[in-house]
Computed example of a mutant assay.
Amino acid sequence: MELAQLSHTLRQDALSVVFVNVLLQQMGVPVPAVPTLLLAGSLAAGPDGLGKLLAVAVLASVVADWAWYGAGKLFGYRVLAGLCKLSINPASCVSQTEARFIRWGLSSLVVAKFIPGFSTVAPPIAGALRMNLGGFLLAAAAGAALWAGAALGAGWVLKEAVQAAIVALDEHMGRALVVLGLLAGAWLGWKLWQKYRFRQQCAIAHITPTELLAALESAERPLVLDLRGATMVAATGPIPGTRLAEHDRLHEAVGDWPKNRPIVTLCACPEDAGAIQAARHLLEAGYLSVRPLQGGYEAWLAATSQTAPADAQ
């Protein structure tokens, strides 16, 4: 839709356009909402109109967050695993975001809209962890009000500049599309480069579940760090003989473990992304033998037939 057409549509029915745009964006559809909010704010007739726009934007955002909350409550960690698989950079595993969310609590929802990626996984994590629905909706509404209010308010205050920008963009739409295409290409190239770098990092030596079982029976048993998120641990139970660990607190999990003793990292991430990332971090910290478990938690279950491993501590 051209900007002139969008501007005309907003003049005719701004509330519906804002509601649908924000709802789709918050549900995960790759459509930008901030430009629409800026434009809608610049076209608002007065404070009352601005307030109505803010109300429908908050309502749309909360409806989307409520839907994600319900999905997380119904399907648990499987929703988070699915979101992780959709990421173009598997190294940014959902379990890391989940750990931060648990640490910060519902207050993190107030700023979630301003953090790319976090705003998508926070609502299903809250649902999977069975967080209080009333508190969740209140925090989600506060965060949506800040996010949408900032965009609408900026449009209102800078209405002349926004309108001038629209006219300029319409006059030079071809050039603007070229610039946007170049920016999108640069962003995609950067993401693909991150994926390529991750592929290179995958060259780190892994340990198979069979080898790990044998190592656990040896005289020098490895320390096994379980990097699965709290949601999955709560749903499936801890793995006996392992230590729960967070990516942001690896050294606390390792504790006084000697640097010359073997360590195995385990996650439930696509391509063992989180386990590889943690292993590399510990190797860089001076630990001599750190290997991610090949195939992660699912491979471990298949190898043990859900039989608890020996104590790795």
Rank of each mutant, 00 (worst) to 15 (best):
I102P: 01
C267M: 07
E171H: 09
I88G: 13
E2M: 12
I166C: 11
W187S: 08
P30L: 12
G149T: 06
E220C: 04
A140H: 04
Q5L: 13
T97E: 11
I204F: 01
R228K: 06
V167R: 12
L43S: 03
G72V: 03
A144C: 11
G295T: 12
R291Y: 06
E171C: 07
A303E: 15
A161V: 12
G237Y: 04
Q294F: 10
P270Q: 15
A310E: 14
T242H: 05
L83D: 05
P123I: 05
L106D: 12
A91T: 06
A128F: 01
S7W: 02
I125P: 00
M173V: 10
A40C: 08
T242A: 06
K259N: 00
L182V: 13
E220P: 00
G155M: 09
L54I: 06
L10D: 11
L212D: 10
E246Q: 12
E171D: 13
H8Y: 14
G127D: 08
K191E: 13
L83M: 15
I115Q: 06
P30A: 05
H251L: 15
A161N: 13
S305P: 04
V56A: 04
L223W: 00
V58A: 06
A186R: 01
V179I: 11
Q313L: 13
L3T: 07
L266F: 03
G135T: 05
V34R: 02
H281P: 00
N21A: 14
N132S: 12
D65H: 02
I166M: 09
S107I: 08
G135A: 15
L80P: 01
A148W: 02
S108L: 09
P209L: 14
W190V: 06
A279P: 00
F75P: 00
A91N: 04
A165E: 11
W190E: 06
P123A: 06
W190A: 13
R199A: 14
T36Y: 05
C84Y: 07
T120L: 15
Y297A: 10
G174V: 10
G296Q: 10
G296A: 11
W193D: 13
R291L: 11
A303M: 10
G143Q: 11
L227A: 09
P30W: 09
T265N: 00
L43P: 01
V58Y: 06
G127A: 04
Y69A: 02
Q277G: 00
V290R: 00
A230H: 15
A44Q: 09
V63I: 15
S95H: 07
G72F: 05
R243K: 09
G181Q: 05
F75N: 03
C202F: 07
L188M: 13
E160D: 14
P124Q: 07
A176F: 13
A303V: 14
I239F: 01
A184W: 08
N21F: 04
L288V: 03
A278N: 01
T242G: 03
